[in-house]
């Protein structure tokens, strides 16, 4: 009697198990092995520390992702709480526009950054008219930052709005009745309530920025983020072991960041990206 449901469960779980094994575990294991298959063997995994170019690339990627995450969380928290608290004409259109970047591939976002701050870009035209100097920052870390921020904001803002909807207004009123000025209400009531959502969406932002490739590839030339380094090692230098080891390290660093966030928030953070 009790064996049949167990058998049924195993049968039902089989497809998921096969997919997990064939498309997740096996390639992963193979990647780890390839990473150690080069001339340096397993030491290739240390290349991120020993090869200056790889180390710089790793540091730049982590710093960029951190900056993007912090900026996205800051901007989205203010905007998200505002959008929840205020009703005005065009509000729902604005909210749906804000989620627009979710649909774009990295290439399109790179293209948008070029339209904004490239050699023929809007920022260039305006600054040229104002100061005589054309400002161009699309093809640098600054351009990448703008692009990543653009596609990170919707991810955070939707989470913030969902959390802000659930805020009990009487909590803020209670704090104010006890003498708390507005900034203390934000620090003591609003931010603690939003914290789990901010950590979760911030972690997703960070992971996405660590692994994003399309935007960097479009802006190209002298941007040295880790996914670009992996691409260069793989295609131009044909250093397959190097590319594999860097990929594994990139995955581990991102995974560690998500695990840290999960510990901080005490709840589950989806490892996306």
């Amino acid at each position: 009697m009790s064996q049949r449901p167990a058998l049924l469960l195993i049968l039902l779980a089989l497809p998921a198990g096969v997919v997990f094994l064939a498309f997740f575990l096996l390639p992963m294991a193979r990647l780890v092995l390839i990473g150690a298959s080069g001339e340096d063997g397993a030491a290739a995994y240390l290349s991120v520390l020993t090869t200056p170019r790889h180390l710089e690339s790793m540091i730049a990627t982590v710093l960029l992702s951190l900056a993007v995450t912090l900026a996205a969380v800051a901007v989205s928290t203010v905007a998200g709480v505002f959008l929840v608290r205020h009703r005005f004409p065009g509000r729902s259109t604005l909210v749906s526009l804000l989620t627009f970047p979710l649909a774009f591939p990295g290439v399109v976002i790179g293209f948008l950054v070029i339209l904004l701050a490239g050699r023929q870009g809007l920022v260039g035209e305006v600054t040229k008219a104002l100061t005589g100097d054309k400002m161009v920052f699309a093809y640098s870390m600054a351009g990448l930052f703008v692009g990543y921020l653009y596609f990170s904001i919707p991810r955070v803002i939707l989470t913030v709005m969902a959390a802000a909807e659930k805020l009990d207004p009487s909590l803020e009123e209670a704090a104010r009745s006890l003498g708390a000025p507005p900034w203390r209400v934000v620090a003591d009531v609003i931010l603690p309530a939003l914290k789990p959502g901010l950590i979760a969406s911030g972690a997703i932002c960070f992971a996405t920025s660590m692994g994003a490739f399309g935007t960097a590839f479009t802006l190209a030339t002298n941007i040295d983020v880790l996914p670009m380094t992996i691409y260069t090692e793989f295609t131009l230098s044909a250093n397959i072991a190097g590319a594999a080891s860097l990929s594994v390290v990139l995955g581990l660093v991102t995974w560690a960041a998500l695990a840290l966030a999960r510990n901080l928030s005490g709840s589950t953070v989806a490892a996306a990206g």
């Binding site: 009990d168 009487s170 909590l171 009123e173 209670a174 704090a175 104010r176 009745s177 006890l178 003498g179 708390a180 000025p181 003591d188 009531v189 603690p192 309530a193």
Partner: peptide, 28 residues
């Protein structure tokens, strides 16, 4: 309200969930 020196009690209690009982009472 923050300068009127009034105490308020709400139907929904409105206690700060991120603080202990003592911290709630000490907040003001």
């Amino acid at each position: 309200i923050e300068r009127r020196e009034v105490g308020m009690v709400f139907q929904s209690y409105a206690l700060f969930p991120n603080m202990s009982v003592r911290q709630n009472v000490a907040y003001g």
